[in-house]
């Protein structure tokens, strides 16, 4: 929190102006879908209005609102996962019948440049949007929301082994996708 210290909750009529983009960005990084991100922001603001007497002035209003948003995001992800079909096994596309890499990864030559902040978030969002939904959901809850395996199992109603398989496939899929995204970045001279 760089400019924290704001301990009073502004009037709800100012919320969209002051916090709308922050909440939207946070949701978009996790849901990778602009419509879904806007919907969870709306749900968040509406439940914050109803619950605003519970804001006791101990926290930064942004932290308080993001706390509500996190719950809405997890609810949304849980709904998606319940409705999503089981994934096909993508591993046959990655490994040959003797278990060797079909297309080994090259070495990333300039990791710092590839991990340039804004570019990276954009690439990550595109790649998350392209993953099967259950894999994307597991990755977001684990890596962006910091949930452990037990938390994942509870939220998604799956076993630890399922969780590890989903995360493994998500990571491999992301690595493959990011290679394309990073390749594009590397080709732009003097960016």
């Amino acid at each position: 929190m760089t400019e924290g210290g704001d301990r009073t909750l502004p009037d709800p009529s100012e919320w969209v102006e002051r916090y709308g983009d922050l909440l939207y960005r946070y949701a978009l990084a996790r849901l990778a879908d602009p419509d879904a991100a806007r919907d969870v922001v709306q749900e968040t603001l509406l439940s914050a209005v109803k619950g605003r007497t519970s804001f006791v002035g101990r926290a930064d209003p942004r932290t308080w609102l993001v706390g509500i948003l996190k719950h809405k995001i997890v609810d949304h992800i849980r709904r998606i996962v319940r409705e999503a079909p089981a994934d096909d096994d993508p591993e046959a596309a990655w490994f040959d019948s003797s278990g060797r890499w079909r297309n080994p990864f090259g070495t990333v030559t300039e990791p710092d440049r590839m991990l340039d902040s804004r570019e990276f978030w954009r690439a990550l969002r595109r790649c998350l949007a392209g993953l099967p939904r259950r894999q994307a959901a597991a990755f977001v809850l684990r890596e962006l929301e910091g949930m452990d395996t037990a938390g994942l199992c509870q939220e998604l109603g799956i076993t630890a082994t399922n969780a590890w398989v989903l995360l493994h496939r998500a990571r491999l899929g992301l690595r493959r996708c990011l290679e394309k995204e990073w390749g594009r970045v590397a080709e732009e001279p003097n960016r």
Partner: peptide
């Protein structure tokens, strides 16, 4: 390391 950074999260998109 950056997932919970509210300022940095998500590439500058706006409503």
């Amino acid at each position: 390391s950056r997932g919970q950074d509210l300022e940095a999260a998500g590439e500058g998109s706006r409503l």
